[in-house]
Each structure stands twice: as structure tokens, then as C-alpha cells.
Design a protein around this nucleic acid. Structure first.
Lengths: 361, 361
DNA sequence: TTGTACGCGTTATCAG
DNA sequence: CTGATAACGCGTACAA
């Protein structure tokens, strides 16, 4: 074993191997190495091969910092989550990373913990690192204040977050459409006396959904009286309690649209405990498609999926376009889907046809 | 409004403002600017102030890329999650970011989706970006294969992940200790006929916990016969089903230690449906302290918390130390805590004293 | 076909 | 006290 081999394999080089090292080892200059490795210019094939071999042998990795400095682009973007990442962030982040990853872009993760100064620190850090763009995410009750990127004209996109500035681009789930398909599903299953058990009414999402539900009912000549629209905390226990109020005031209810799967679970459990059959007597639709809850509920929840992974993917794609120079602004609402399980009966064809639900556990 | 002001406020400069711009505007050279802004060298206070003012006015932000290139340190680390981020990743990531954030270090998020080539791409990208260190995370059934950082001597730390290499540093929750405190808690509440309902036995965590539980029981002159240790899928439905098997074979059970809060929830629900009182007749302890499940269960679950946020924090801190030059290796197990709620009775003093549980809903 | 030299934005070391 | 200049690692016109 020659000492040369020792150097290569055993001594972890203190300073990472640079293009100069490769040039020296290959007996050429750095210009030649660069051309050989990037397939630029005109080189003798033999030289190119030799340089490549040496680079490989030395484990040469081009320094992205130097490249970024030169190109004026870092191929990184910042991802800011305002409320520390709740469960909604997971599909969202995963979708964003999907889109960005396939464009060879790395993502800086910043958790602002809902703290303004902390957030600004993160932003400053991102700008100092010359990120190509920033995605801001994190559901809030009302529109948040836009982030301040100073004079940097760094593209910013809000995903599952909203600001009032007209020139900002916000991607949001279409809450109204989500409520609409849920309500229509209940109606399609022949339910006519519907109720809504949901979260605090100061959430914009709550208002949008309730409004949409009311609208759909109206289109069918039905209504949603106040005592059938119950707002409370986003908790399973609230769903459980609300069923008590509801049945006491209006025992004829035959369908309930819930503002979250957690609430829906509380609702379904409470109904079962009272001997009310789901979906035979009362059909239930949830919201969020939080699998771990929706699938564990008995019967499994039919629920609205906000398609947050897809929303994230689109956010990433749109940001790439903005980085490429596209101007974009406004609020874009992306459609929700209905995930049909068992809590509403299984059949979804037509409006009248009904079939006995076969409850597989 | 002068045209100067126009330039500053309305025209978003195409190229970010550099130290040269500041120097020119302040009528000094870049060296002076650097010193003024970094508090280095000896400068007339008036000059320093003037330069600072100009820098602020121009919105100058030092380019971290250039600094990193020069210093040979990027002040970034990579975070690789192997299994796409499950719910365990959230407290973990948050803890890691806590520790790293307070050291002014930014985090690259990489989701490997449990795909080896994707993972290696991410690693190559991180190395090209000259990250100062890498944290690998993501629970797996068995030890994973170590990541390949080539010849870069980049510090690597495994958090909530495990490799067999002896010179790697792995941070893991102390599963055995977690099982021990759960079991001892049940015993302290006077339970003597304990059962264990948990996940698939090919998980190392499952084996470690079961072994520990058995050990504790042995120390108290008790045992855990095979028919009281039930392994199944990590699902609520499994807990629900398992209760049936258990009670059929051994109706005298007075305490159940569950492998997850989801399983525990299934267990508690099944017990209630059978008219078995929790905790009066049977006490239940869960695992994970997954608040949303544990708190929604009636009665709320007493459960083991793996302290993953703290584990993440420590991971971040240790990585910083490694970046600073500290050599570290081996497996470090961090203690779990018991979160006492209602599913086991409320009193935890002494071993015999018991009090009527007051079930607040 | 290959080598040279400049610039990207900083910091730090010397002169002045 | 301040100004000029050399790095850091790379890509690329331009010269040889």
C-alpha cells in the first residue's frame, strides 16, 4: 500500500478538497478542471476523462457557497411556520419539499413560534443567506401581518396563511367549497334536517364554511336555524357535549357536518352512547381527513380533505415561478376533496338511491 | 421629495446592496466599512457612526455566503428525516431548532421519504452547501445504515435513530426506563395482575419495554405470563380487540400498560363498553403522551412521555459541541417521564394509600 | 486544446 | 486612524 493511497483513504483532509487540488493532481489548471467537470468548452476527451477520474478519486465536491456567490443565486428557500408546526404543517411541508426538491433546491426550516421578533430574526438570517424565496405558512385566526424583507425584492408566498396586502400571493384551501361538498353529500344521502357542530366562530374558516353550508341548504329549500349551528372549542369533548344540546333541542336531526375530525369523533361516540345509529339514524361528515382519527372512529369518518400536500406542492411550484421572474398576487383557493368512508353511508351515486351500509371493522 | 429618496425607497435595487455601495455612499473604503460595522480595529467614532448610518439607510445586509466562504463555516446544519415526518418528528425538530437557533444556526430540512437514493441526494446537496453538521432522525424498526459523508469529516449525530457503527453518536429515549416507571406506577397503585398490550414484537422498542416490565414485576415477585403480553399493530383498533382476548382469558386483570396512547385509547373505550370501570376496576397507562389522544380519552390517560423535545434540544447542543471539535460516540439513552392524568387513579404517593379518583370532565 | 486572470462579497493583514 | 490588497472556491471570457 503506497503512501499515496494512505493519504487518500485514511487521512480525512482537514480542508475540503478544492478545484485546485484536483488540478494539481491531474496536472492541469483549474480552468481545465472546471470545463471538464461541467462539460463546457472544448477539451480532449482523454483529458476530460482523466480529470473526472481524479476528481472522483479525490472525492471532489464543488462548493455551492462559491457557486452561489458567483451566480447570485443560492438555490435555497426559507420556510417559515408561524404557529409551531401543528399537524397541518406536516403534509404542507412535505408537499413544498416535494416541489422544491425536484428543482434541486434546499429548504431552510424556521419555526417562529408565533413570536414576532423571533420571526424577524429568522427572516433576517434567511435574507443574509440570500435565499431565493420565502414561503410563509401556518394557519391563523385572522390575516397575519406580512413579513418584512426590506429592500430585497425576495419573492414571498403565503401558503395556508393569509395577509391583507393586495400584492401578496396567498394559497388557501377553499373552505366554502369544502363545506359545500360535505353538505351536498349529506343531502345526496337523503338527509334533510342538518346540523353543524364546529369551532369558534371568530375563525374565518368557521364563518366561511357555515355560510357555504347555509347557502347550499337554501338552494335546496332548507335552512340552518341558529340552534343547529353550534360553535365551540376545537376539541373532541366539545363534539361530545354538543350532541347533548343538539338532541335535546332538536331530536329530529338526521345529519351533522362537523368542523373537524376530532369534533366528529366526539359526536359519533356521543351518538353511539345514546343508542343513536350512525349512519342509519344520523349521518356524520368530518373535516380535515386526519387519518389517525378518521379511520379509528367507528364507523370510520367520511370527511373533507383539504389536500394540504397538494397545496404545498403548488406553493413550491408557484414560488419557483416567482423566482424565475413571474409576478403573482392575490388569493388562490384550492379545492378540497371528500373522502368517503362509513359515517354517512357508503353509496354516493345519484341523489336518491340508498343502500344498506356494510360496516366492515 | 428628492430623487435621492426616490431611489432609496421606491426602486427595489436589482442587485442587493454590497459593502462597496456602502463604502461609496459613505466616502470611505470597504475595509473601513467592515471595521465600522463589526466593531473591529480603531476608528474615529464619528466615522463609525456615519458608516453605520449609511449602512442602515441603504439597508445593507452582509452576505453570509461570502462570509461562509471565507470562514470555512456555513453556520448551517442539515436535518434528515428518514421516515417522512411523522408526529414524533415535530417535537424533535422543534427541540433541535431550539438549540441550533439560539446559536444562530439555520437548519436545512430534508425528507428522505425512506428512500436511500433520495437520502443520498440530500446528503450530497448538504455537503455541497458545506453544512457544519448533520442530524439524522426518524424511528425505524431496526438500526439503520449510517449515512455516507464521504471524506468530509462532517459531524453526524443520530437522534431518535440508531446505527450499529460504534463510532457514531446516537441519542435515544430510554424505552426500558419508560416501561419501568409505567409499571412501577401501576404497582404503586396496588395493581398486581398486570397485562401489556403493545405493538409488533419485531420493534426493538417493544422488546425493550416488555423486558423491562417483566423485570420490574419479577423484582416484586410477580410475573408477566405470555397470555398477558399481547403484540399487534400500532392501532387503536388493536387495543380495542385485544381487550376482548385479554378479559376472556384472564378476567382478573387489574392493570394494563399499553405500547401507545392510540392502543390505550382503544383499550379504555373497550373496557368502558364492557362496563369495566377505569381506573377503579382496571388501571391503564399509555405511551407517547400524544396530548390530543391522551387528553381526549375518558378518563384522560396517564402515560409515558419520551421527552422528544428535550431529546431534540440535547441533540442540537451535542452537535454544536461536535462541530466545535468534541469527539463523541456511543448510544445515549435519555429518560422518559410519567405524565399522570386520570386513567390510573390520581394519587401517586406511597404504595398503598389510595383515594377515590375524582373524575372531572 | 489548454492556461490566465478577473469577479462574486467578505474579512483580515499590512502599509501608510 | 484609514486605505489598499490578499485570500476564500468557483466559473468563464479571453489569450496563448
Amino acid at each position: 500500500m503506497s503512501s499515496e493511497l494512505d493519504n487518500e483513504q485514511e487521512l480525512p483532509q482537514q480542508h475540503a478538497v478544492t478545484i485546485h487540488d484536483v488540478a494539481r493532481a491531474a496536472g492541469v489548471t483549474i480552468g481545465t478542471v472546471s470545463k471538464a467537470l461541467n462539460g463546457q468548452g472544448k477539451l480532449k476527451e482523454e483529458t476530460r476523462e482523466r480529470v473526472r477520474a481524479v476528481a472522483l478519486r479525490l472525492g471532489f465536491r464543488p462548493n455551492d457557497l462559491a457557486q452561489s456567490l458567483l451566480r447570485g443565486r443560492s438555490f435555497t428557500v426559507g420556510l417559515i411556520t408561524t404557529d409551531s408546526y401543528g399537524r397541518f404543517s406536516i403534509p404542507l411541508m412535505s408537499g413544498i419539499e416535494d416541489a422544491l426538491g425536484s428543482a434541486q433546491i434546499s429548504v431552510f426550516l424556521c419555526d417562529a413560534r408565533d413570536d414576532a421578533v423571533r420571526e424577524q430574526q429568522h427572516i433576517n438570517s434567511l435574507l443574509a443567506k440570500r435565499v431565493d424565496g420565502i414561503i410563509v405558512t401556518g394557519r391563523r385566526i385572522d390575516a397575519r401581518v406580512p413579513i418584512d424583507v426590506g429592500n430585497t425584492n425576495t419573492p414571498v408566498l403565503y401558503a395556508y396563511a393569509q395577509v391583507k396586502e393586495a400584492d401578496a400571493l396567498c394559497l388557501l384551501p377553499d373552505e366554502a367549497q369544502g363545506a359545500r361538498i360535505a353538505t351536498e353529500h349529506l343531502l345526496a344521502h337523503g338527509r334533510r334536517r342538518l346540523a353543524h357542530i364546529t369551532g369558534p366562530s371568530y375563525f374565518e374558516a368557521v364563518q366561511l364554511r357555515q355560510e357555504a353550508m347555509r347557502q347550499v341548504l337554501k338552494e335546496h329549500g332548507l335552512d340552518l336555524p341558529g340552534h343547529r349551528a353550534l360553535a365551540g372549542p376545537w376539541q373532541e369533548a366539545w363534539g361530545h357535549r354538543a350532541v347533548g344540546f343538539l338532541l335535546e333541542m332538536d331530536p329530529g336531526i338526521d345529519g351533522i357536518f362537523c368542523g373537524s375530525d376530532q369534533i366528529a369523533r366526539g359526536v359519533v361516540d356521543a351518538l353511539r352512547e345514546r343508542g343513536v345509529k350512525v349512519p342509519a339514524d344520523v349521518a356524520v361528515v368530518g373535516f380535515d381527513n386526519w387519518e389517525i382519527i378518521a379511520a379509528a372512529t367507528r364507523p370510520a369518518l367520511t370527511t373533507v380533505d383539504m389536500n394540504l400536500h397538494e397545496l404545498g406542492r403548488i406553493a413550491g411550484t408557484r414560488l419557483l415561478a416567482m423566482i424565475a421572474g413571474e409576478k403573482a398576487s392575490g388569493i388562490i383557493r384550492l379545492p378540497c376533496s371528500l373522502i368517503v368512508r362509513d359515517s354517512c353511508g357508503v353509496h354516493t351515486l345519484g341523489t336518491a338511491e340508498r343502500r344498506k351500509e356494510d360496516q366492515g371493522d
